[in-house]
């Protein structure tokens, strides 16, 4: 509920409150979606890595489930970043893709890396090993994210100042930006919670079915984590 409120407020601010940018005009408003999306997606990958560390330490499959959902959703946001970034690049520089935008380029690389997360899971049949290997991947990729940003940024250091400019925004822009950021972060958290609940529900359903002696639907291979009955419980 809070998510809906903050998101609507953010959208209202974006369209009606924030002033047009002096150079780029109306299209610059996509900045309020693009940058918070990028920040939340990055945060999602890092949180996913932290959850993966927790899974490796505790061997509790619920941590793998949490990490899986966190990364899965962050990947969806990353696609949003690429699309909004491309639109912004088109408006600001007249091209759909700008290799000088280090955020955009870094996101492409990160997207390419995380796009292999699901195929990797899918390619491992033993569910326990799948969870463990996926966690190793999540940790390695989580460390890669900042390192990659640094390297790509270094390559363009003299060309393109990007996020640094967000710090000296005028007050109205700054407020809009922060509300948008909060809205998208809340959206991410809400989606995460919904997906977790649905995953637990389907795991319980499978367990019940097995108890009733129905044909085992889990024989189907899946990229999503499987929970042993003992690990099912609250989010």
């Amino acid at each position: 509920m809070l998510t809906v409120l903050v998101l609507s407020a953010a959208l209202a601010l974006v369209f009606f409150y924030a002033p047009d940018d002096a150079d780029q005009g109306f299209v610059q408003r996509i900045f309020y979606i693009h940058v918070p999306l990028a920040i939340v997606a990055l945060g999602g990958f890092v949180v996913g890595a932290a959850m993966a560390v927790a899974h490796l330490r505790t061997r509790d499959p619920r941590w793998d489930m949490r990490s899986y959902v966190a990364i899965h959703l962050a990947l969806v946001l990353a696609v949003g970043v690429l699309i909004t970034g491309a639109i912004w690049a088109r408006a600001a520089w007249g091209v759909w893709w700008d290799w000088n935008d280090s955020t955009l380029v870094s996101f492409l690389i990160i997207f390419l890396l995380y796009a292999t997360y699901q195929p990797l899971r899918f390619a491992i049949e033993d569910p326990e090993r799948q969870a463990r290997y996926a966690s190793v991947f999540a940790v390695v990729a989580g460390v890669f994210v900042p390192l990659n940003f640094m390297a790509v940024r270094l390559a363009q250091a003299y060309v393109h100042p990007s996020l640094g400019s967000a710090k000296n925004l005028p007050g109205s822009m700054r407020l809009t930006f922060l509300v948008s950021l909060a809205g998208i972060a809340l959206l991410y958290a809400t989606l995460w919670k919904y997906e977790m609940t649905s995953k637990y529900a389907s795991a319980q359903l499978r367990a019940l079915r097995r108890k009733l002696g129905a044909p085992d639907a889990t024989a189907r291979r899946s990229a999503a984590p499987a929970l042993p009955p003992a690990a099912q419980g609250t989010v």
């Binding site: 033993d126 326990e128 889990t218 499987a226 929970l227 009955p229």
Partner: peptide, 8 residues
Amino acid sequence: GLARHYGE
């Protein structure tokens, strides 16, 4: 009480 699972 040893148990070892293969998935579920």
